[in-house]
Design a binder for these strands. Structure first.
Lengths: 274, 274
DNA sequence: TAAACAGTGTAGACGGCATAAACAGTTTAG
DNA sequence: CTAAACTGTTTATGCCGTCTACACTGTTTA
């Protein structure tokens, strides 16, 4: 009886997000389900990007009318929110003997890697803070990673939030710079937008580092008088030994810096473990 | 002559972004300009959100046909990119006597404040890494802030990038949690989506803190067995003295942690100043 | 001075999009 | 057996970005 009583309070979109459909039903058994809809939407996004995900497209892939989807999902916004929770998958198992810092690093890097294999994840309007089952599982993993830290819950939450933010930011930068590199290579080769990424020359892609536009801009468009320090930076820019820094290096830098900052905080609070 | 020669290499969308239109023209003098278009687009977004910005809407506000815009802008994507560069405005003046850390903090916080007054900024597809004149000016300011730091240019760039990332992430969290709070208050009051934010009860809004959904989820939807650490965190959650942490506190936490991390990096590189 | 031409704005149309309303069929509750 | 609840379909609306063809206006050039 607490079931029915509590369910009444939970808004319907949350019930759908957590897949809590009331059991006693009446009409015909549905041929469609939230899960099937979300899954094919994700497949379309994987194959052709988020822009290709439309109600009509998803319905078509399932062999239904567009309007059929609306019986299971309140609209496209909700579909996107459902995709956002579905996509990250379960968090990686965190070895029990890992210290909080290593554990958090694992947690963070897993997310970055995940998002980078699904670039369209960043195109989702991260509309809601409210977690679904998957994001809750990730959060659970973060709290597990910090279980030995003597910090109040709200501070742990802030730390997890900070790292999650960093994941999004870092991934965005990586994905964007890859996109512009792709674009540049494509244009240099005189190819259209319809050529798939896979056919682009991987060497040229590796060479097209993201700051290439910078030089062009600062030499051709921006006067050094207006941007003296930027111009100076460009002038002193020296190719690092062994070529441009890889994206791995950049990711390691960001994660390391943020974790250093967290470590400083932990130390200041005297919350570390022996 | 170097002018013409170089201009030929710069792609047209970059020329528009930097407002470099070739001088010697032929046809009738244009009644419209990139600047006017971008400006009214920004005005519409300020008033009604980014979703209200459509080609037709912008053209209408200017008293032109939708297609007229396409003479000055290659399409909607480019318009959005132009808005992205136009919106941040000039960076704040950085006092010359500020140390690098304080200067970077000023730089970072200014951006956060700016973005929070223009929530739709986060809705923009940050499609391009390539900076326009305004973003270049912000970058210039960052390099100015770090002028006394003995670090190679690429590391300074990485630091600026990390902070810029953090700005986006932090602002996103703030804006989103505000949006969900607004939504919650609206629903609680039984109001529709058409009620403007300004008419919402500010007290109720302040009370609707972003983690409110958490409790609901963990008590009604998620079993504590599946999310033990999360449940534990919720159980030990104690209202901090003086109410929920304000958004100022949260922002300070994030910026502080990241800067601590950067400071650790700088110290490790032995690049700090006396 | 006249013809060629590049550039600017307009008119109309197209296909795609999210979604609203009305309806017919199906299963269960009473 | 009837009423109610539910699922999927049909049809239609209005908005969107953008393509094409066109008329007009200045400048450049012959």
């Amino acid at each position: 009886m607490s079931e029915a009583g509590t369910d009444a309070v939970v808004p319907p979109e949350l019930q759908r997000l957590w897949r809590r459909q009331p059991a006693g039903r009446r009409g015909p058994r549905p041929a469609l389900s939230v899960d099937r809809i979300v899954q094919t939407a994700v497949e379309i996004a994987d194959a052709e990007g988020l822009a290709a995900v439309s109600m009509a497209r998803v319905a078509d892939a399932l062999g239904f009318t567009p309007m059929a989807l609306y019986r299971h999902v309140s609209g496209k916004d909700e579909l996107l929110a459902l995709m956002a929770d579905a996509v990250p998958g379960p968090p990686p198992p965190i070895p029990a003997d890992l210290g909080w810092r290593d554990a958090l690093e694992l947690w963070t890097r897993s997310q970055i890697e995940l998002a980078m294999t699904r670039p369209w994840y960043l195109d989702l309007p991260l509309s809601s803070v409210t977690p679904g089952p998957q994001r809750a599982a990730w959060l659970e993993a973060a709290f597990y990673a910090m279980r030995d830290l003597a910090l109040p819950a709200d501070e742990k939450m802030a730390i997890a939030g900070l790292l999650a933010q960093h994941v999004l930011g870092e991934t965005r930068v990586q994905v964007e710079s890859r996109r512009t590199a792709v674009q540049r290579v494509r244009r240099a080769a005189g190819l259209g937008d319809d050529v798939p990424d896979s056919e682009l020359d991987p060497e040229a892609l590796a060479a097209a580092h993201p700051y290439a536009d910078f030089e062009l801009i600062l030499t051709r468009l921006a006067s050094p008088e207006e941007y003296p320090y930027l111009a100076g930076a460009l002038a002193s820019w020296e190719p690092s030994p062994g070529g441009e820094p890889s994206s791995d290096d950049e990711i390691a830098f960001g994660v390391g810096v943020v974790l250093d900052g967290i470590e400083a905080w932990v130390a200041r609070r005297g919350a570390g473990t022996a």
